[in-house]
Each structure stands twice: as C-alpha cells, then as structure tokens.
C-alpha cells in the first residue's frame, strides 16, 4: 500500500505526518520525494546509509562527424542546441534528455552522456527503510530522482510505503503521487494554506486518487481549512493540535510518535483510518 502525503503550501506538516505514520507502522518504507529540500532523514537519522548517484542522459556531439545540417537544432523543442561557425553548441542545462537529436541526426554525430543530477541515500531507522532523494543545487528538475525512488521501492517494498511529496501541485508532485493508492492532504488553518490546499485538492481529483485531509496546527478559533473540507465533503482523517511541545520536539529533530504516547496514539489511529479507507 502506497500512501502519498502532500500539501499545496510548504510548511504545513507533510514530513511530520509521513515520518510519524512510517514510525508507527510495523514495517514501512519512507520515500522523501521532496528532493529539493529533503528533511525526513533529519528525523529518522538512518544508519547503514548507502548512496547511489542518479544520472540523466544528455546530448553529446562529435564535431568531426557533424556536417552542419542543423536537423537537431530545428528539432529540439527546448532550444538546447545552436549551430555557430561550423560548431554545434549544446546547452547541457537546457537539454531535457529526450534523445530526439540523436534520432534525427543523419551523421550519427550525436550520442548521450551521463550527467549526475543528485543522489539517493538509503538507510534504516528501526523498522523503517528510509530512502531520500537529494537533488544537486541548481538542477532544473528532480523528477528522475523521484522516478528512481519509486522504481527501487517496487523491488523491495515493505507492505506500507509513505511518500513524502514536494510542496505545490506541479509536475514533480504529480510524479510523486502517480503510483499512490491513497493521498493524505495536509492542511493548515490559514487562508493562504486553504488556497494552496485547493490546488492539491484539484490535483488529486484530476488524478482520480482517493484522498482525505489531515488538519494540522488546529486551534480553538475558526479553521478555514476545516470549513473548506466541510464545503467540499472532504473526509477529515485527523486533527493535530497547535502544540508548542510538538513544535519543540519537531524542531529538535525528534519523531513525536516515538517520544510521546499521545502522538503515538494519534498517528496509530490515523494510519488505521487510512488503511481502512484504502481497503473500503
């Protein structure tokens, strides 16, 4: 069972929820797909860590073979190629690894080379397999890292996988939820939070994913996120209180459900609720 945890806005509690759900499970894989700023490992502090470099293929030209026909320049929809003074110029950070230039080159002057974009760090934390995607600074897209995380997880998956998604609702989030059986949308009680919550709400509907909401940082006041859920008939799976002590644990890199019975119970209940939702 694969459960993706997402939220439109950053800082609403995706990592809090996904880390704690993985921590209360009998056995789980935790995939940190927030590859631009992975932080799940700060909580799990995995041991026996192994690293794998992740590469993408980018165009490489043999100037000797190139006859200057420019078919590749015309073909490239990303404009990663230019032909100046009898030389083909390749902009490596514009290349999208599509391989099209190789196909259209009549001279076989174009091949591919590996370009590292980041790494995957894997380790164990108690009963949790912790796999984090770490994108190199300045890279345009972390999608190949997310694909690798999801692919590797197919081979040696625990029964339960928690996918900690990047914030937002763009391609990188779509990639993270594509294999998920269920999506947990984490919402915070602000108007800004609700605006971005609506974006992921539209996304999971578009992808036809079953989903429910976790309301984080709940206080006694009116909760615009709760109002949004009621208006749209979104199932509220759990409410996490605005709690200074939880905040302190979190900011010290502690996993609340491993430290505190109250939160172990809260996340155990949440996990049971989600499992029932998936089976229903």
């Amino acid at each position: 069972m694969k459960i993706a945890v997402l939220s439109g806005k950053g800082g609403t509690g995706k990592t809090l929820v996904s880390v704690n759900l993985a921590a209360v499970a009998k056995a789980a894989s935790y995939l940190d797909c927030d590859v631009e700023e992975p932080n799940g490992h700060l909580f799990f502090k995995p041991t026996d860590v192994e690293e794998t470099e992740v590469n993408v293929k980018i165009a490489l030209v043999d100037q000797e073979l190139c006859n200057g026909c420019r078919k590749c320049v015309e073909f490239c929809k990303f404009n990663a190629l230019a032909y100046v003074k009898d030389r083909l110029i390749i902009f490596e950070d514009v290349c999208h690894s599509c391989g099209g230039c190789m196909l259209v080159c009549p001279q076989q002057a174009l091949t591919e080379k590996n370009k590292p974009i980041g790494k995957i760090q894997s380790g164990r934390s108690d009963r949790v397999q912790v796999n984090s995607g770490i994108l190199n600074t300045g890279e345009a897209t972390g999608i190949p890292l997310i694909n690798k995380l999801l692919e590797d997880n197919k081979e040696n998956a625990a029964d339960l996988t928690l996918i900690d998604c990047p914030p937002g609702s763009a391609c990188i989030v779509m990639e993270s939820i594509k294999d998920a059986d269920y999506c947990i949308l984490v919402a915070e009680p602000t108007l800004f939070g609700v605006h971005n919550f609506n974006m992921v709400y539209e996304l999971v509907n578009l992808f036809d994913k079953p989903f429910g909401a976790v309301l984080n940082k709940c206080q006694a006041d009116d909760n615009p996120a709760e109002a949004f859920c009621k208006k749209n008939n979104i199932k509220i799976l759990a409410r996490i209180p605005f709690d200074r002590e939880l905040g302190t644990l979190n900011s010290n890199g502690k996993i609340a459900s491993r430290e505190w019975e109250k939160y172990r119970a809260l996340f155990t209940d949440l996990l049971e609720t989600v499992v029932e939702e998936v089976k229903a």
Binding site: K77, N79, F91
Partner: peptide, 8 residues
C-alpha cells in the same frame, strides 16, 4: 518558445 528562447 516555452523555453530556451534566448538561444534560438
């Protein structure tokens, strides 16, 4: 162009 306009 959606991207790479400067190059083109």
């Amino acid at each position: 162009s959606t991207g790479g306009a400067g190059i083109k």
